[in-house]
Write a protein that binds this DNA or RNA. Structure first.
Lengths: 251, 251
DNA sequence: TCAATATAATTGGTATGACCAACGAGGTGG
DNA sequence: CCACCTCGTTGGTCATACCAATTATATTGA
């Protein structure tokens, strides 16, 4: 009673929705095209019309199709074209953006920062140092450090945007991977850089804070470059291994 | 056959979903709580069970509830608690953030901008001028203008973050309202400011682009201030009216 | 001949009722 | 007291029917 190849969860409509999304993604129904009628889909997928309706509503809520009464369901947006807006953001773009934005945020924060903020940021610097000794750390302290500075701007929008940039990293597996590699290869100087930023904030020196933040993120970009090379070397090694394997097999 | 007060679109399930979301938002069903059974909801809202199911699926797709077979639908997340992270961002914070970030973006864009970018931005400046003559315009051209500059940075992360800031406005009704008021009261100078930014980009002058962008957004902040006062005056007027009404009623 | 109109077919919207499967509370027997 | 069973509740799905909006087709009138 389910002639498609997907694993059956509890709810049929989810299977069907997945199938339809798949078909949208593979271009079977281009933007603007009309989906087959509900009754047709019901026959095609061997389910009842209510189930088809549930699946179509799932797509509709996600903005993938638009249902016109008496006419049909029309493709509005291909899956994956919009719902993951930052999917292809590279680690370099991300850090360059952070260099610009967090630099300014740090400058603004220097003019707004309170003693409580300073105290919190101090704690986070310690935490970062501690986290570095622990291999496999998740860089949570680093994130908190940067967000604490964003928070010190006393501007929710700025905080929000910077948080957004950090979240982008998570949505881009490539960027996350590269950062992880960079982190494991480059540990010591980071604490000094963070301390420099903290000192600038302590002094309420906007220009110094901007400079220190930019210097820090420029350093991150450098380490990313280094990690990229490392990765290239590893890839070459893997290729060589694979080649040897093919060779020995052929022999 | 619809005892609630919402206006009926074409689809009943949407009305019901809106009602349920409203009830979630007002705390009638806290996180973890179980919604009434489908059959109960059907009776309560005087709709059929399939319609109730469709509405619940709409909530489920949006991650607001989790449906457990044979048990019920449970609240996972209150609407607005996560999907609208910037709900309380004020128009001022937003524009201050844009001043900082878009200023830097403009500076970077000045070093990266292509002739095609320039041509597109020129068109958008014209479009903005045109849009200003049309009362009730949606400021779409303005948005496009700023995003085109963000795009000219050739940095997806920057583009993404700036787009995020614009989207924040939409999620904050208060900010959107204030902007609308400000726009209707302050039209003429905007074109000149946009032209100034365009000229700086044409000249590939990063500092000039940053300055022009900052000046433009500083001007926006001014108009927001003006609109705020206007609104305060209106509110005072309304209060006075209400007071008079209460007075005459008491008399 | 052609365009306006009337009619029929198609399509989504909703309702009803039925049956199944998963879950859970409460009773039952060990 | 605990394991087990039973049965009512709940969601999952289906089949069918009818309504309303849309669209295609046929008809009619100029």
């Amino acid at each position: 009673m389910n002639d498609n190849g997907t694993k059956g969860q509890d709810r049929l409509y989810q299977d069907l929705a997945r199938n339809l999304i798949e078909e949208l993604a593979t271009g079977q129904y281009p933007i603007g095209a009309r989906l087959p009628a509900e009754r047709e889909l019901a026959i095609k997928y061997n389910v009842s019309r209510p189930t088809v309706r549930e699946a179509i509503i799932a797509l509709e809520v996600q903005g993938m199709v638009e249902v016109k009464v008496g006419s049909g369901a029309y493709v509005r947006r291909l899956p994956g074209s919009d719902d993951l807006p930052g999917f292809n953001v590279s680690a370099f773009e991300l850090t360059e953006g952070r260099l610009l934005f967090e630099g300014e945020a740090a400058a603004l924060a220097a003019t707004q920062v309170t003693d409580e903020d300073i105290a919190e940021i101090e704690k986070l610097v310690d935490e970062i140092a501690h986290e570095n000794n622990d291999p496999g750390g998740t860089e949570q302290a680093d994130r908190k450090f940067h967000l604490a500075i964003a928070k010190a701007t006393r501007n929710t929008a700025i905080y929000n945007a910077i948080e957004h940039l950090w979240d982008l990293r998570a949505t881009s597996p490539e960027a996350a991977l590269l950062h992880e590699k960079a982190r494991s290869a480059n540990i010591k100087p980071v604490v000094d850089e963070h301390t420099a930023i903290l000192n600038a904030l302590r002094a309420r020196d906007a220009n110094a804070a901007r400079s220190a933040m930019r210097a820090h993120l420029a350093q991150v970009i450098d380490s990313l470059l280094f990690a990229t090379e490392e990765r290239a070397i590893e890839e070459a090694r893997r290729n060589a291994q694979a080649k040897r394997a093919r060779y020995s097999q052929a022999t």
